[in-house]
Amino acid sequence: MASSSEGGNLALLATIAISVVFFAAAAVALGYYLVFGENLAGPPQNIYVIRLSEYTIEASPEPIIVKVGQPVVFKIVNEGAVEHELMFVPNLQMMADMIMNAAIRLQEQNPELSEEEIIAMVDKRHEMVMEEMIEKALKGKVEGEEFMIELEPGESTVATFTFLEPGIYVIACMKLDGTFPEPHAKEGMFNQIIVVEG
């Protein structure tokens, strides 16, 4: 009699132990949901590495998701073989067409000049205009030192930005080397920064 009662107690203990383990697992799952379940597309980060190459802008991790009002650090690396830039673009279609048209017009006006010289002329003429345009468009939306960061091959830099309004911001490269007369953006060299509230 005594041995059978002992065996019964053991079975009871084992049953309770198993159910406790299962409830603990359920609690862990619930905790995971409560901690990670509220994010839009993964947690917004404070630091992103942005790689420029022919002809892509890649971020790590992707996508670039940033919280409103929180400073974000971009480490920008040019891994390509030609000069690239990271530029905030208010209207990608318009800007790309503008640069392409300018390049074509300059080439028509000065047929004796080489491609490199025309690229240099386009850069020089539009740098001032574009910088002004971008700063005007981003005023009150983004805080940062520079919205047009140019990098030689192999060069890298660090820039800090603070986004003040939620939405989607476009970064692109408007250089012409290799894709003349189209800017690199038309080959797909652009990316989006998703700014969320929180």
Partner: peptide, 19 residues
Amino acid sequence: AVVLPPELFDFWYESLGEE
């Protein structure tokens, strides 16, 4: 898979298609 806003997708789609 990169999901873009419609105007950005159109830019990508049209510029590479023309090329």
